[in-house]
Design a protein around this nucleic acid. Structure first.
Lengths: 179, 179
DNA sequence: CGAGCGCTTGATTGAGTTCAAAAATCGTGG
DNA sequence: CCACGATTTTTGAACTCAATCAAGCGCTCG
């Protein structure tokens, strides 16, 4: 994740916690949303659409931050869940830790870089979803996250790619048959 | 766009410019990317995929900022174009204006809020693309951008929604027939 | 050992694309 | 201001990719 040392300093507003596989760190609409830094393990954030389907927004493995975006000024509230795919060791930052007015200039700069990185990732994902076939998206996923297929159930990868588990299975079959 | 007065202060690094319809403000891979605030008119940012198809990332009408995200630390460079849909009056901020180390704390806070808003919008778009049909996406678009259909060619709306102009035309026909 | 969950595989269906051509609109120069 | 060419939009037919429906297999965990 780089060297965001200042923003990740552990202080009175943060603590190390352990979560078991399947544990929910943050449920929908939770008020005081935290920011989580994954020391070890694997988390995911996802929403549930109005048809009851899960859509994974991000995976966060070792060294990554995960959080819901706080939107004081916007009526849009993305109902986001965060839970645990593997047993994980996580630094939990109280929202106060990321309270802008309490941050130093250096911390704000680091935070900005984190946000910009996230924007770039999201933009690329939007473009992928609009332009690439399911197979292309899966191949791209394998390139950018080569280690995840071993750690994440297929159905979650499908959910991340925006396709059904059945389609992903078929795609995998086609790829395997070629080689 | 809210009240981002501090970050939008005009200084020696910014200037007001007029652009004609069709003019390109920023071409792919341009080094010193600027940030544009639309006083009047309409801009768009878009990419071109490897099949040569345009995909619109954002529309920016009066009161909105538009820019490419700068990613010093990431190998990913989204090749983004910005051009003019209507004759527009734009404040062009030199990249130095948004040079983090030169910003005050207050400006950094405002910048952070802008970035977070953008993330929320992008996340919702990702979820939309993964869960909603073309018709649903179009209806949602009409709700959130009721004025744009009068100002933007259909094919660009289609490009924004991730569908072909033909499909959008068909969808519009269906909607019209119902009422 | 059996129940349940996840993955695979195949048949069918449907939303959206592609290809093609006609109709409408826009823009520009005379 | 009109006319003509260019671009956009509409419409229709054929096709394609991925979703849905459905059945069967294999593994794990209780």
């Amino acid at each position: 994740m780089g060297d965001f040392n200042h923003i990740l300093e552990i202080d009175e507003n943060s603590q190390i916690k352990h979560f078991k596989k399947g544990e929910i760190l943050q449920a929908e609409g939770q008020k005081n949303s935290s920011v989580y830094y994954v020391k070890k393990g694997l988390l995911r954030s996802y929403t549930i659409d109005n048809k009851g389907k899960e859509h994974i927004i991000t995976f966060a493995s070792e060294g990554w931050l995960i959080s819901n975006v706080k939107l004081a000024d916007l009526d849009i509230t993305n109902k986001v869940f965060i839970d645990c795919i593997e047993h994980s060791e996580v630094i939990v930052f109280d929202k106060n830790h990321f309270d802008l007015s309490k941050l130093t200039n250096l911390q704000l700069e680091e935070n900005t870089r984190l946000l910009e990185r996230r924007i770039a990732v999201l933009e690329r994902r939007v473009i992928m979803l609009m332009s690439a076939s399911a197979k292309d998206r899966y191949n791209k996923f394998l390139k950018t996250h080569p280690e995840l297929p071993n750690r994440v159930p297929q159905r979650m990868i499908a959910s991340y790619l925006g396709i059904t588990p059945q389609s992903l299975s078929t795609i995998k079959g086609e790829i395997a048959r070629k080689s």
